[in-house]
């Protein structure tokens, strides 16, 4: 018997391992898996390695969509710490807010948080795109290495601290920049690309955008930059 095309998985009373095994077995190109009663439990929908859609009908806990490689995960609620952590490809979309470390260390794919992100969103990002519809907290984009983050609302203190590469766009106010983070004016093509990405996910496009990039002063140690290093370490 082939698995149902649009299976429904109920989390109530079942172990995380069983639920994830069911999600993986049900997933495949063109499939839409519904997951009921996630009740903010941790580690749901991790390491999904094939295409297909998984929809959580409620909040999820830590690491939902972590290590994702190709699946489209939607969360109709909020997400806890480390949503989509270590993702390679695919999409993770959160209708509500996300906790600390959203999209931490992702190498590719798309993470959309319609609401706010707490501290350290996009920490150590190595590729991919993170769209934040609301505000982003302390040390967003800390030690980012590649990829793009868009914050439609305000950014907290120490934005993009010690970033190597990559780009952060901010629609609202920046509470403070981190070490070696530099504000630049975005180009017309930057603005067009960001607007297109936001519109595709029904996020209002901010009137103005600031672009934050690495000043590259921390790439190599220079004695002349001693004060910068002192501040960064």
């Amino acid at each position: 018997m082939s698995p149902a095309r649009n299976p429904v998985i109920d989390c109530a009373g079942r172990s995380t391992r069983d639920i994830n095994r069911d999600i993986r077995a049900s997933l495949g190109p063109g499939r839409r898996v519904k997951v009921r009663n996630p009740a903010a439990r941790h580690n749901l929908g991790v390491a999904l390695l094939s295409p297909g859609a998984v929809g959580f009908e409620g909040s999820v806990g830590y690491y939902c969509g972590g290590m994702n490689d190709g699946a489209t995960v939607t969360v109709n609620g909020s997400a806890g710490w480390g949503v989509a952590e270590g993702m390679l490809s695919g999409t993770v979309e959160v209708a509500g807010n996300a906790g600390n470390g959203a999209a931490a260390s992702i190498r590719g794919g798309l993470v959309v948080v319609k609401g706010d992100c707490a501290a350290r969103a996009g920490v150590s990002m190595k590729g991919g795109l993170l769209l934040i519809g609301g505000d982003a907290g302390y040390m967003t984009a800390f030690m980012m290495q590649r990829g793009t983050i868009v914050i439609v609302g305000n950014a907290g203190h120490a934005l993009a601290d010690s970033m190597y590469e990559g780009v952060v766009y901010v629609g609202g106010e920046i509470e403070s920049l981190g070490n070696d983070a530099v504000v630049k004016a975005p180009s017309r093509s930057d603005r067009q690309a960001i607007a297109a990405a936001l519109e595709e996910h029904h996020i209002p496009v901010p009137k103005r955008l600031k672009k934050v990039v690495s000043g590259r002063k921390l790439w190599n140690f220079e004695h002349a930059e001693l004060e910068t290093w002192r501040a960064a370490l």
């Binding site: 609620g77 909020s78 509500g96 600390n100 609401g115 907290g137 302390y138 203190h157």
Partner: peptide, 12 residues
């Protein structure tokens, strides 16, 4: 139960 939207504040 499921009422209300969960929010995590930032630091400080």
């Amino acid at each position: 139960g499921t009422d209300g939207v969960a929010h995590e504040p930032s630091g400080n």
